[in-house]
């Protein structure tokens, strides 16, 4: 009879993970108009790097949580600077194809180096234990995921709404060309945002490892849900990503409980309904 709170908490944990993946994706799209298909591949890289780090330095989860985003930040910066920026002048389709190709290459490299089977990452200590919460016994780790998302979301909101950098970022989401003509080094901002998005997806990958296990299909699996989050929330809207992640987290979780065969369809149903009622997404700007 305590299924409902369990599935509710499962939904929150998945929402947290989805938000961590979608936040970077939606910012990059809002600013650069690039739907980054490689975003989830970088999330997967985060998970695999983390696996290797934790094999080498047994159980160093916290080390992983700091090092992997840093590595992904650098990879993201390099991808933007040396690939995306060069392709940019040829148009959106070419940019899309580039990120698509990158996703494919990263996936193949992962299979070649780590193998084509799931790797389990076990987390010990307090994070790996359970606690009593709202009358049930529940894994600490899933609660930890949700708290991480709240932490990251809060930091991002503070930067976006309380700093000069935040004003510049929001301006660039509105109109990057105008921002450039006002003296802002927009190419540098793009590189920073892309790298930050990559770091964030790497962070999400580290966190996903112990929850979902680490396998080459994990990128595909989350990519669809993350796309739905940014469509439903509204392209480029951080607030939208929060709300849509929570919605889809619960939908996925209770979908599995109530309509096991239809849970994926439910997510697309939600997307269709939102698109019909408000094509720009819940928090999107009307064009």
């Amino acid at each position: 009879m305590n299924e409902i709170p369990v599935f509710f908490l499962h939904g929150l944990a998945y929402a947290g993970l989805l938000f961590l993946v979608s936040a970077g994706l939606t910012l990059v799209f809002g600013m650069m108009n690039v739907l980054n298909f490689a975003h989830a591949a970088m999330y997967m890289l985060g998970a695999y790097f983390s696996y290797s780090i934790m094999m080498h330095f047994t159980g160093q989860f916290w080390l992983s949580l700091m090092v992997c985003p840093a590595i992904l930040f650098i990879i993201g910066a390099l991808i933007e600077r040396f690939l995306l920026r060069r392709v940019h002048k040829f148009g959106h389709v070419q940019e899309l194809l580039l990120t698509f190709g990158l996703a494919y290459i990263i996936t193949e490299l992962v299979k070649w180096y780590w193998g084509n089977y799931p790797l389990a990452v076990n987390i010990g200590g307090f994070l790996g234990s359970t606690i009593q919460i709202i009358g049930i016994t529940y894994p600490v780790y899933r609660i930890f995921i949700f708290l991480c998302a709240i932490f990251v979301g809060t930091v991002m909101a503070l930067i976006l709404y309380k700093t000069r950098l935040g004003i510049i970022l929001r301006a660039a989401v509105n109109d990057s060309e105008m921002t450039n003509t006002l003296g802002v080094n927009v190419p540098l901002v793009f590189m920073g945002v892309f790298a930050f998005g990559a770091a964030l997806s790497g962070f999400a990958g580290v966190i996903a490892g112990p929850l979902l296990s680490t396998f080459p299909g994990m990128a595909q699996e989350i990519l669809l849900d993350a796309f739905v989050v940014i469509v439903v929330g509204g392209f480029g809207s951080l607030g939208g990503a929060v709300v849509a992640s929570l919605l889809i987290g619960q939908l996925q979780s209770f979908g599995v409980l109530l309509f096991p065969k239809l849970s994926i369809a439910l997510v697309y149903l939600l997307m269709a309904v939102v698109l019909i009622i408000k094509p720009s997404g819940l928090f999107g700007e009307e064009q």
Binding site: R164, R170, A171, V184
Partner: peptide
Amino acid sequence: FRSLTVHENLLMGIKSGE
């Protein structure tokens, strides 16, 4: 900038790298 306030729009005009 549609989603910025009037004040923030003005702040955007100030050049940081001047």
